[in-house]
Design a protein around this nucleic acid. Sequence first.
DNA 1: CCGAGCATGTAAGGGGTTACATGATTGG
DNA 2: CCAATCATGTAACCCCTTACATGCTCGG
Lengths: 176, 176
Amino acid sequence: MNSQDVILGLLHRQPLSGYEIKQMLEMPLSFFFDASFGTIYPTLAKLEAQGYILKESVIQESRPNKNVYSLTEAGRAQFQAYLESPVEKDSYRSDFMVRMFFGEHMDHDTLTDWVRDEIRKSEEAEKQISLIKQKVSGIRPELSTVKTLCLDIGFELNAAKTRTLHEALRKLTELE
Amino acid sequence: MNSQDVILGLLHRQPLSGYEIKQMLEMPLSFFFDASFGTIYPTLAKLEAQGYILKESVIQESRPNKNVYSLTEAGRAQFQAYLESPVEKDSYRSDFMVRMFFGEHMDHDTLTDWVRDEIRKSEEAEKQISLIKQKVSGIRPELSTVKTLCLDIGFELNAAKTRTLHEALRKLTELE
DNA sequence: CCGAGCATGTAAGGGGTTACATGATTGG
DNA sequence: CCAATCATGTAACCCCTTACATGCTCGG
């Protein structure tokens, strides 16, 4: 799975510009995949060269013009090929956890600061997902099947992280 | 955080060869960081060139010789500099979740197969961590502080994933 | 005798990030 | 007037993965 696959997936619902793709990536998906403009724009150019998408320039008033890309039949087929390819292993990379692992070499105060920071981030993310869940259930009840499920899983995983971190902080302060 | 930092961290306890570093990476750490030989060996060469580690060839009987690396003072300082640098954001990348997100374009059976497979993997990981936890608590009660905590968090996060996936599968089969 | 484990390394390529470059409009 | 939002793109670089190359020993 790479940016190609994800962009082709996003374009199934509607034609999008690079900037809009970045925004789509912001919320529900950003928990499982992320891409910067430095990836998105070159990828779009590559997809167009391969004939998977079509570019159309849209002139806008009071805003910069934008290039909106739509899926071709070849693009649709390419996305299906991705779906039929073997599922890749998840990868989780955590600087925070690596630091905890090497915690012996750090003073106790910094350690608890790291945990508190991580809790703050995790709780922030929790709020964000809740907001999205409300929005989605209000505006788009039609996608209350798989996408909602996806959001739920994201929410639960994050909630578990928050809980575990709170417990870790308790244990850490206990053995002070 | 990159392979440099992690390798310097691992060498704090004892001198290690590239092959042994790969083994150290196998279990507790592999949940939060991973590296292949193609990364480890060139990184070791680079660390040596920078004066952060020292190479010593160890001749072994009935086994290939190995290059064992030990930490220098400069290496120790470099690792401290890493610990004092800002904590990087976690990155989680999940092909499985992306596929769930685009689940509308896949048939129901394949979808549930994916979930079942993910559950299997998650439960396998759970067993593995349990084993390590037992081993560690038996052999090395001295590291029952931060490293144990790290293992616990890893275990809990994984357990939460398993639970959530089971629930997701239930929901999926319900709306069949 | 064959496969698994031990052991080290290289080369090519993939896939990404950050920073830079540019520029218009809108709201506070 | 300044910051934020909208909008696109490039160039340098980083970091890592896969595949290849090599070769020894031990157990079944």
